[in-house]
Structure formats: structure tokens, C-alpha cells
Design a protein around this nucleic acid. Sequence first.
DNA 1: TGGTTTGCCGACCATTCTGGTCGGTCACCG
DNA 2: CGGTGACCGACCAGAATGGTCGGCAAACCA
Lengths: 199, 199
Amino acid sequence: MARPFRQQVDEGILDRAAALFARRGFAKTSVQDVADAVGLSKAGLLHHFPTKDVLYAAVVAQADTLAARVLDQLGDLPAGPERDRRAVETMVDVALGHPGLVALLLAPAIQSGVDPAAPIADGPLRVFVEDPETAPPERLVRVLGAYAALAVLTLAAHQQDRTTAWRRHIVATCLDALGSAEPTTATVAPRPHPEPNEA
Amino acid sequence: MARPFRQQVDEGILDRAAALFARRGFAKTSVQDVADAVGLSKAGLLHHFPTKDVLYAAVVAQADTLAARVLDQLGDLPAGPERDRRAVETMVDVALGHPGLVALLLAPAIQSGVDPAAPIADGPLRVFVEDPETAPPERLVRVLGAYAALAVLTLAAHQQDRTTAWRRHIVATCLDALGSAEPTTATVAPRPHPEPNEA
DNA sequence: TGGTTTGCCGACCATTCTGGTCGGTCACCG
DNA sequence: CGGTGACCGACCAGAATGGTCGGCAAACCA
């Protein structure tokens, strides 16, 4: 206690740093970049986190905390449109508060392999698909698309001070992308695939 | 002429380079990075494009060509669901062939300000909204979300050799995100959202 | 009041990375 | 055989990198 201010500052730093790490990866994000992003000098930033690696570790830890919170809040809702809706809504809410950290969380899934610098495990997928191996391809595509939209939109909203104004639209967009829009308890019969192009 | 091979190689280089430039920006993408991505030595790459700036210029030029092609193919279809469908379809098709270049094209719109290194004009928005100033916010959010999904999904598909298998799903996802969902001339109006309860 | 702590900075340093050059090798072509 | 073009390793000068150090001003505490 007695140090709420310090903590607040640090959290701001962490989120901005996370945004940079998410887009550029650890190696391509310099301490100077982060310092600029948070409005400190390099030395000033290194006063909060003595080392780039320490900073990164703190960022990852914070992101993991966030992920755990989401997973926790989701409980063990059975898979289905209702779970999808709740999941998207809580994820958007979390992301609107910490867009950078969520972007970092989603980065490995989103840019799956664009360059092999995946910062964190690909657990996020599991929120929407139980087993990425057996899930129908369409579901995978849609989850990925929804994540992409979620990450980009929350970041944009945050950075333009539109978080409250855009919330419902972001949720709607992600939900539609996910495809769980239509009637509750739909007959989830995935159309038979014309092309069994599997690996 | 007589150099179709050279051209083919160069195009491969351009697309991969574009992908890197899109994610990291010009400054944070080294010649070595591009060389690695295309499987050449730095000197070998600089044999194709004598300078980093020349390479970048070539990339941008190619991207612009692509953009022009899309705009052209779209003609002057009146705004509306039909135009949306056609636009998404042609964009996806182009993007499946050149995911990196399209990502670069979309980059300024997508990471609008994450870091102010916008490589190309934000023209792409105009494909779906006539005037970003007067357009309803929901439309903007949805277009942005659709773009994000488009860029990420085509990149992923290309990089996993699923371009043909995923095409229809990508189109569907983007279309749903856009909100102009239903099949040709469907009456299925965007169903009104029930009160989004808080979590 | 004065002493101490805290948050932050400019200047600096050794090391790495950068864009780019140069000379050379190898395959192909006439 | 002598080009020619694609490609590479080694190299270079300058820039960027992570990190240190001494200092300064404001807040805190006595």
C-alpha cells in the first residue's frame, strides 16, 4: 500500500510496452521505443524496470494475469452461442482497458508464424475451440478473424478515446465475425465439406 | 522480356518484404530481415534491389498497382450490400495471392496511429465508406474490423497453404464482420441487438 | 529548517546492428 | 573458350542498442 501511484504509472507503462512488443516482437522493440511511448527518457524508464528483460517479464506476467481473469470469469460455461457471447463481451471489456496487453496475448495466435517470435503460448484459442486439431476449419478461421478484429478495434478505440462509444459496435462486429449471431441453440451442423484438404 | 523468371522471383521478394514492412514499419525492418525471409543473403538481395529505399519504393509501387486493380474491378457499383459483397470478394482474392502487399496497403488504416509510421495513404477506407467524417461510427468500426480480419486471415492462409480451402470462410467472416451478411437479396435485416447485459 | 528519499534526466560507454561495397565463385550460354 | 548474371562471404564506417553514472529538483520527514 501507500504506493498506488507508482503502481498506476507502472501499469500504464506495461500496457504501452505490451502494445509495442505485440507488433514488433521483443528484439525489434528498443527500450528507447518504450520510453518514447510512455513519455519518459530511457534512463527514466530503466529506473522503473532495471532491465529490458525485467520489463518484458513484467509485461508477460501482467498479460497472463489478465488471461487468467478472463478464463476465470468465463467459468465453465458450456460451449455454444451463449458462451461465445459472454466470452466476446468480457474479452472486449478487458481489452478496452488494456488493449496493449490483450494484443500481446493474441499476437501469437494472430500472426501465427509471420515471424516466429511468438511471445506467449497460444492458449487464447482454447477460449473458443476445445481442440484446434479437430475443430472445423471454418470455426478456426472465424475465431482468428474475430481475434484480429478485437485486437485492432480495441487498440484503435483506446487510442482515440472512443472506448465507451465503440464498445457495443466492437462486440457486435466480433460476434458477427465469430458467426454465433443467429438463434440460440442453433443446430450446429457444420455443412459437409466439399474439399477435405487436410494436413 | 525473356526475363519472366527474374520477375517472378522479384514478386516473391516484394510480397514478403511488404509483409515485414507492414508489421514493423520501414525503419524497424532491416535488409537482413527481408533477406532472411526470402532465403537470400543480404548481398544477394541487394543484387535484386540495389538499395533499401529502392526496395521499399518497389514494394509501395506494387501495392499501389494492386489497389488500383481492385478499385478498377469494382467499377462504380453503387454503395450497398451488393457492392460490399463484391468488394470483399475481390479483395480477398487479391489478398490471397499477395497477402503481404495487401497487409501493407491496409496497415495505415488498421494500426491507425499505434505508431505514426503510416506507409501509404489511407485510401483503402474509401472502398467501403464514402466519407470517414460523416459515416456512422458503427460502419467505421465494422470496416476496420473486417480489414483486420482480412489481413490476418489471408496472411495466415497463405502461410499455411490453405488459400483455396479457406477462401469461402474468409469471405464469410469478413462479410459478417462488415454486417452486410446475408445471401443475395436476403430480407434478413441485421437483427436488432437485445440489451447487452453487463458482465 | 535541513537531511533524505524519490523520480527523473543528460551524457556517456562498449557492443551490436545497420546499409552498403567489393571481390570472388559457380552455373549457364554462345 | 570468354562472357554474363545470380549469388555469396567478408568487410567497413557509422548508427543504434542496452545499460551505467552523476546530478538535480521536488516531495517527504524531522
